[in-house]
Simulated scan of single mutants.
Amino acid sequence: MLEIVRIPVLSDNYVWLVHEPASGETAAIDPAVAEPVLAEAASRGWRIGQIWNTHWHPDHIGGNEAIKRATGCAVTGPAAEAARIPTLDRLVAEGDRVRLGEVEAVVMEVPAHTAGHIAYHLPTEEVVFVGDTLFAMGCGRLFEGTAEQMHDNLQRLSALPPETAVYCAHEYTLANGRFALAAEPGNWAVQRRLSEVEAARAAGEATVPTTIALERATNPFMRASSAAELAERRAWKDSFRG
C-alpha cells in the first residue's frame, strides 16, 4: 500500500508526497515549493527520488529545481511541455509507464487546462493524480484548450473504477460546491456533499482526495451531457460569485 501525504502550500495548493514502502522510494507530485516538501520527507525518514509533474504552471513546478539540487531526484513530466519545464529528465506521453518501486503509473494525456497536461493513473492502487484537470466538484479553467478536450478528459476519468481516489492539486471544493448547487439545484447528492464540505472547511479540514464515484454524482462538469453544456457551465463558473 502506498503512503500518500498531503502537504498544503501557498494559498490553496496541495503537494502530494508518495512513498512506496516495499522499495522505500518516494515521489513528490507537483511540488509548488521545495522547503516544506523536503521537510516533510525528512521528518518521515524518506528521501525523494522522483518528482512527477502534471503540467508546466509555476505553482506545480516551482520546487523542482531546489528539490532536485537537494536530493538528486529525477523529474518526470509531459513531453508536450518540455520547453516550459527545464528541469525534466524524462518526457512522457499517453500510455507511457512510470514506476515508483513496485508500483506502476500509466500516463494519461488530459489537455485543456494546459496544452500538454497529463495525469498519472496507478490502477493497482486505485489512485489517480490529476493536477488541475479534475477537482472535487470542479474542473480546471480552459487556458490552453477547448471544452471538447475537457469533456473528453472528464469522460475518460469518469470511466475509471468508482472507488478510484482522485488526488487534485488545489483546495477549491467549497467554491466548487456552491457552483455545483447553482448548476444543479435539484441534485440532492450535491446538497448533502456541500453541507459536509462546509463543515469540514469550518473545522480547518481538507476535502480531498475525492473519488470517481463522488464526482460522477456531484461534479457538474463531469456530469455535463455534452461539450457544449460543459462550455456553458465553465463560462458561468469563471464569473460565478455565489
Rank of each mutant, 00 (worst) to 15 (best):
E3N: 13
E3D: 14
I7Q: 00
P8T: 05
D12T: 05
D12L: 05
D12A: 12
W16P: 02
L17V: 03
V18I: 09
A22D: 14
S23F: 11
E25D: 12
T26I: 13
A27F: 05
A28I: 07
I29D: 04
D30E: 14
D30L: 06
V33E: 07
E35A: 14
L38G: 04
E40M: 07
A41K: 00
A41V: 04
A41I: 06
A42E: 11
S43G: 12
R47Q: 11
R47K: 15
I48F: 00
G49A: 12
G49R: 12
Q50T: 11
I51L: 12
I51Q: 05
I51V: 07
W52P: 00
W52T: 04
T54V: 14
T54E: 06
W56L: 14
W56F: 15
H57T: 05
P58S: 13
D59R: 09
D59C: 12
H60D: 09
I61T: 12
G62Q: 08
I67V: 13
G72P: 08
G72R: 14
G72N: 15
V75A: 06
T76D: 09
G77Y: 06
A79Y: 08
A80I: 00
L88I: 05
L88D: 00
D89W: 07
L91M: 10
V92L: 05
A93P: 10
L100Y: 04
G101D: 13
G101F: 04
E102P: 11
V106S: 12
V110N: 04
P111V: 03
T114C: 11
T114D: 09
G116T: 10
L122W: 15
T124F: 12
E125D: 10
V127Y: 05
V130L: 15
F135N: 03
A136H: 10
G140S: 09
G140H: 10
L142Q: 03
L142M: 09
F143C: 07
T146Q: 03
A147L: 08
E148N: 11
H151I: 10
D152S: 15
R156W: 04
A159K: 14
L160Q: 01
L160S: 05
P162Y: 06
V166K: 03
Y167P: 01
T173W: 01
N176L: 01
R178G: 00
A182W: 04
A182Q: 01
E184N: 08
P185L: 03
G186Y: 03
V190D: 00
V190I: 12
V190L: 04
Q191W: 08
Q191I: 01
R192K: 14
R193N: 02
R193Y: 04
S195V: 15
S195A: 15
E198C: 01
A202H: 08
A202E: 13
A206N: 13
T210P: 04
A213Q: 04
E215V: 11
R216E: 08
A217I: 08
T218G: 00
N219V: 09
N219Q: 08
S225G: 13
S226W: 07
S226V: 11
S226R: 00
S226M: 02
S226P: 02
E232L: 06
R233N: 11
R234Q: 15
W236C: 03
K237C: 12
R241Y: 12
